[in-house]
């Protein structure tokens, strides 16, 4: 009898946790995809919660401080790490993506302060929705400059 109480209590907690996990996962799931994958989805991707990653194309960065509207293009980079490694590491992959005019690109808009790390060939990860206009509306913007962390060989201009 004594044991039973504890077992029932444990099962109740377990059920509650499972419920919390399942319902919260459903409520906040974001589909992570590369830009090529997003393009392949076509119309069906519109309005879904998405998380996309790509390389920032520096020339396209535009910022209007009056409205805090930021727009820029990102170019497709492969999502698979093995592919990235095979192509010479993240920094090289980002560089290649930006200089290649045939890479698929997508325009991003974001409202807010311009992030300090936003610059050419930075890796950007955006959370948001694809609009019917084909522009990706980011609610959240994460940036990383791989050269700061990777073993980038220094320029040979030095002494």
């Amino acid at each position: 009898m004594g044991r039973m109480k504890f077992i029932i209590g444990g099962v109740l907690i377990l059920a509650a946790v499972v419920y919390l996990i399942v319902s919260s996962t459903q409520a906040s799931a974001e589909y992570f995809m590369t830009i090529d994958e997003l393009k392949a989805q076509g119309q069906s991707a519109i309005g879904k919660s998405l998380r996309i990653s790509g390389a920032v194309v520096g020339d396209t960065i535009q910022y209007d401080p009056q409205t805090l509207t930021l727009t820029f293009d990102v170019a497709d980079v492969p999502g698979d790490n093995n592919v990235i490694d095979a192509q010479g590491g993240l920094a090289a992959v980002l560089h290649a993506a930006v200089i290649d005019p045939n890479r698929s690109r997508i325009e991003i808009t974001y409202t807010g302060p311009k992030p300090d790390l936003l610059k050419n060939e930075a890796q950007a990860i955006m959370t948001g929705q694809l609009g019917a206009d084909g522009v990706f509306h980011a609610d959240e913007l994460l940036l990383k400059c791989p050269t700061k962390y990777q073993n980038a060989v220094p320029n040979q201009t030095g002494g």
């Binding site: 996962t25 409520a27 974001e30 992570f32």
Partner: peptide
């Protein structure tokens, strides 16, 4: 075959009652 991530709302929602 599709990567699905969960963001801060997931954690907020799931951990708040606990």
């Amino acid at each position: 075959g599709q990567t699905v991530t969960v963001g801060p709302p997931f954690y907020d929602r799931a951990t708040a009652p606990l």
